[in-house]
């Protein structure tokens, strides 16, 4: 058992650990940036839905011999587009429609999986397998990560307006529909890339908690981005280490560290608020 008692800095000596950390950091940063937009747009459920909906895409792609990421991306985007269509043409609420469609797709994925004569590891798709990434996956993650981050950060003002007030964005003649689909595509892409690290069941946490934590710290959007990325990267790295030592699920550890930081931030913001109000009362 001496494997689990060695000091943490020696873990960097392991190739698989270095690769895991790179993937963890890139994924965390991407998801954190996106989470700031999702929080403001109220798209938490959308993140949940898209992440579940990728399953049939992955299974089908593996049956057809296509790259899994392509199948996942198409299915995720398909879920969002289909929900938008049903929402527009029925009397149902958005969350209801999303619930119906993503569960239907996830269920279909399971049914297909039962018939899939493949070597697909359902466990790795659902729970991630960050300690077992390949060199190619590291490169893929890093490239997509840099691409997504630069596009989103470059268009962040437009996207922010879209999230804050879609009608106003339309009134300003911004290409709101295009931006909408840009955001959706980025969402699907980030989820596809994160599957490796955290698995599709817990991706949604990476897409909500960092942004929410940052929202507690600051009212400025740019600072929100910074805080969210820092929080996400710190929790990702420490989560990977913790999971190594306790030999528990990596994704669960990352999410729990994030949750702990959120809780501390919440208490901190209450404390600051109280101190501020106390100061105001004294003339």
């Amino acid at each position: 058992m001496n494997l689990y008692t060695e000091p943490w800095w020696e873990l960097f000596g392991y190739e698989f650990m270095r690769e895991a950390l790179v993937v963890g950091v890139v994924v965390a940063a991407m998801a954190a940036v996106l989470s700031c937009f999702l929080i403001l747009k109220g798209w938490s459920l959308m993140g949940d839905a898209v992440s579940h909906a990728v399953l049939p895409g992955i299974v089908l792609a593996s049956m057809l011999g296509l790259p899994l990421a392509v199948g996942a991306f198409v299915a995720g985007l398909g879920c969002a587009v289909a929900s938008g269509f049903v929402k527009r043409h029925s009397r149902l609420k958005e969350d209801t429609v999303l619930g119906v469609i993503f569960t239907g797709m996830f269920g279909l994925g399971l049914v297909l999986y039962s018939k899939a004569p493949t070597v697909l590891h359902l466990d790795h798709i659902l729970f991630g397998n960050i300690l077992g990434v390949s060199r190619a996956q590291v490169w893929q993650t890093a490239l997509i990560g840099v691409g997504v981050l630069s596009v989103v950060l470059a268009r962040r003002r437009d996207l922010l307006l879209l999230c804050f007030d879609e009608r106003h964005a339309r009134a300003l003649a911004l290409p709101a529909t295009a931006l909408h689909y840009l955001l959706l595509s980025v969402l699907a892409l980030v989820i596809v890339v994160s599957l490796q690290a955290v698995g599709l069941l817990l991706v949604v946490a990476m897409l909500i908690t960092p942004g929410a934590t940052a929202r507690l710290w600051t009212d400025s959007f740019d600072w929100m981005l910074v805080v969210a990325v820092v929080v996400a990267v710190v929790s990702s790295v420490s989560g990977i280490f913790i999971s190594y030592y306790v030999s528990g699920s990596t994704a669960a550890c990352v999410v729990l560290v994030q949750a702990a930081i959120f809780l501390l931030s919440l208490m901190g913001s209450r404390w600051r608020a109280r101190r501020f109000r106390g100061a105001r009362r004294v003339p």
Binding site: S44, G211, A212, A251, L256
Partner: peptide, 19 residues
Amino acid sequence: REDAVMGIVFTTFFAAGLL
């Protein structure tokens, strides 16, 4: 927002369960 709060809480509980 309510949806964000729910997302945080349920993923935390779920993660705890998986751990």
